[in-house]
Design a protein around this nucleic acid. Structure first.
Lengths: 241, 241
DNA sequence: ACCTGAACACCGTTCAAGT
DNA sequence: ACCTGAACACCGTTCAAGT
């Protein structure tokens, strides 16, 4: 039959900003940052570049819109029944972002650039708000809430960003175990004089689990907030996982 | 005199990988990510593209080399006389990276992409090692060192990344006070139903100092490490600044 | 109001040719 | 071994023209 990838299938719905953003996300997911081009976009949407530019100012705005859409979706996933009060909710929000970056690796870089470019954009307040509310609920006094929330958000973005493409480095065909093994081995072969520490934790790196590790970090920051910002060092031990 | 920017001043030293990387860093500093093109590079170095490709495989490798050079320089700045044992050294290393990103805003994005692309590259071990050694010195037991160090590194990269271009958003002519004012005002105008928390900390955001805030976060993570990973919750209060 | 598609300026990269 | 510079394929963006 030789049915090539459906060609010039006449567009049935009119073009719209949402449809364009949706297609952009699909392209980014499929081929990463480099996969989003106006050429690819016009083909997928069966139009010309002019049509897209009528709905969107430029590529940068399109990238921002795609980021915003994915983050909004990730934060919209409520844990339904609140699991165990504020600390649990903070973990849930953090994991939501972690998983979103895991599913959309391009998010990591995009988040970093966008956050540093315009902290008043819609993404920062969104994340900030979700975390901040729970920080207040934990009992952190008003004067420390900005500091505590910032620390959490920074940790989340830093950690999620790094973990992002870890598994995807060489495509989905690479086994996670093989990958960690390779990194671990590379670390073990570093110069003993220059890298004693990194060598010594090479095996811990081999055995670690990204999500577990990520959550452990969240608990670390939460413990710090408890120790430094709660009047009395009240119960802060994380629940057994 | 009309001495335009020195033209075709015949190259005196031979081209070298270091010279190319140096020029790349200059271009990145001057005009950001978009400022580094092979065209600009050939003009600055008074050569053709072929000459550059003889020393460097491609643009990606050049970007990696530039990142590595700047990070190495930042980590090489030793605090001379160790200020106050491990915790102080961790703060010093963190501030070194913070300042490097502040001076070279393009580092933030570059670091994020590079770390997620190849954690075995030279940059990760370098940072990891500097922090990790001190984590060991603080007294964290071996089994927890990987987790503790990861948390610190993630926080540092996340925070430094976000703070990166904050001041530079609209070039160096924008007053920092005006900038924070604008962001703060934008936050105050957010929807009261959707963003109660962000609105409530708008004034804290206006008055915060990037470096102070960054260090407060480091202390938060350190306090968490002390609380969670040191056998007894031994003295962890940060020194008065 | 919304879309078409040719055209423009610019980019990373290659390669036959020089020294 | 190291460098030159024309050429190629591709990209974001514009715009006169259509409906």
């Amino acid at each position: 039959m030789a049915t090539r990838t459906r060609r010039s299938q006449r567009r049935t719905e009119a073009l719209s900003r949402e449809r364009i953003v949706e297609a952009a996300v699909e392209l980014l997911d499929a081929a990463g940052e480099g996969g989003l081009t106006f050429r690819a976009l016009t083909e997928r949407l069966a139009t010309g570049p002019g049509a897209i530019y009528w709905h969107v100012a430029n590529k940068s705005e399109l990238l921002d819109a795609a980021t915003d859409a994915v983050v909004a979706a990730a934060l919209a996933i409520e844990p339904a029944e609140s699991p165990d009060a504020p600390r649990g909710k903070i973990r849930a929000v953090a994991l939501g972002l972690f998983d979103a970056i895991d599913e959309h690796p391009w998010l990591a870089t995009q988040l970093a650039t966008q956050l540093s470019r315009s902290p008043w954009g819609s993404v920062t307040p969104r994340i900030f708000e979700s975390i901040g509310r729970q920080v207040g609920a934990v009992g952190v006094p008003e004067g420390s809430q900005f500091t505590a929330t910032s620390a959490l958000v920074h940790y989340i973005l830093g950690a999620a960003g790094q973990n992002a493409a870890n598994g995807r480095v060489l495509g989905p065909d690479v086994d996670r175990g093989d990958f960690l093994d390779a990194v671990s081995k590379a670390w073990e072969e570093l110069d003993p004089d220059d890298y004693p520490f990194t060598r010594s934790v090479a095996d811990q790196m081999r055995e670690h689990d990204d999500r577990e590790q990520f959550l452990a970090g969240i608990d670390l920051v939460l413990a710090g907030i408890t120790a430094l910002h709660l009047p009395n060092g009240q119960a802060s031990a994380p629940p057994a996982t």
